[in-house]
Each structure stands twice: as C-alpha cells, then as structure tokens.
C-alpha cells in the first residue's frame, strides 16, 4: 500500500479531532446518543508521554497524562476512543461518533459534528498564532561597532 503513507487516514483524523475537542462542545453538538453496547470502559487511566533526548534522540519518559478510553458496538460497527482528560461521557460520545462515521450516516455527522469542531479548532489555533506573531521581534540596527 504505497498510498497509505501519503494519504491521511480519515479515521485517524476524526479520532484525533474528537480526542482534542472540549467535552462540553461535543455534548452540545450531539446531545442524543443512539443505542449502543459498551465493549470496554469508559475507563479513566494514564498514558506515559515520551519525549526525545535533545528533541531528536532516544525516547525518555516525560510524565503521564490522564486519558479516558471507551469502545462501543453500534450495530455492526465498532467504535473506539482514547480522549484526553477524565470525562467518561466524552469518551463514550467519541467512541459512538467513531462508530457512526463507519455507517451510512457518516456524511450527515461529518457535517453536523465534525465540521463545526474542525472549524472551531482551526479558528482557535489561528488566533493563538496571530497573537504570537504580534510578539515577533523586528530588529533594527542602531550602531554597528565597526562603523566607527
């Protein structure tokens, strides 16, 4: 599968978006959940986050973060979620959403849930980057020593 590395896996993208979003925002966008069976969790735990020595060398253990995971079955579709934080409802919603995105309703949920989440995340990132850009230093030379 040579294309696997260049084309982003759409499931990977929506799972990341669902993990990063604010639980309250996801709840507001999908207040009602379709009937589903819990396969595992929701379970609160920790994930050890690794860095690299010098940013590019061997891995080292930086510290843990809280994560809640959940797996659900919705008809024939199985949905999984690992989401940052300790919100069980967030993990269930993200797992149900992952399952729904594998069904015929995917396009509709893409439009009503994922698209707004994506737009809001992009706007928040752009605002942060714009504030950072405003603090970028413009140097101008006053006197150069060798000009004397």
């Amino acid at each position: 599968m040579p294309s696997a590395q260049t084309e982003p896996n759409p499931r990977k993208l929506w799972m990341g978006l669902l993990a990063r979003c604010a639980p309250a925002r996801l709840a507001a966008l999908m207040p009602d959940l379709p009937p589903h069976d819990l396969l595992r969790g929701p379970e609160i735990g920790a994930v050890m986050v690794q860095g690299r020595v010098g940013g590019t060398g061997q891995p080292f253990n930086l510290g843990e973060m809280t994560v809640t995971r959940c797996s659900v079955r919705l008809g024939d579709a199985v949905g999984h979620a690992h989401v940052q934080g300790r919100d069980r409802a967030h993990a269930i919603r993200a797992a149900v959403m992952d399952a729904l995105m594998q069904t015929e309703q995917a396009a509709s949920f893409e439009a009503t849930v994922l698209a707004p989440l994506k737009a809001e995340e992009s706007a928040a990132r752009a605002l942060r980057a714009a504030k950072a850009a405003a603090t970028k230093v413009e140097f101008f030379t006053l006197v150069r020593g060798e000009d004397k």
């Binding site: 379970e43 994930v47 690794q50 930086l62 843990e64 690992h82």
Partner: peptide, 13 residues
C-alpha cells in the same frame, strides 16, 4: 490510575 499505554515520542519540532 491504570496505565493505558505509552505515547509515541513527542515531535517537538
């Protein structure tokens, strides 16, 4: 907390 896993090394770049 149960240890649910270990992350990939962060890409600080």
């Amino acid at each position: 907390l149960p240890r649910l896993g270990v992350s990939l090394p962060l890409e600080t770049a």
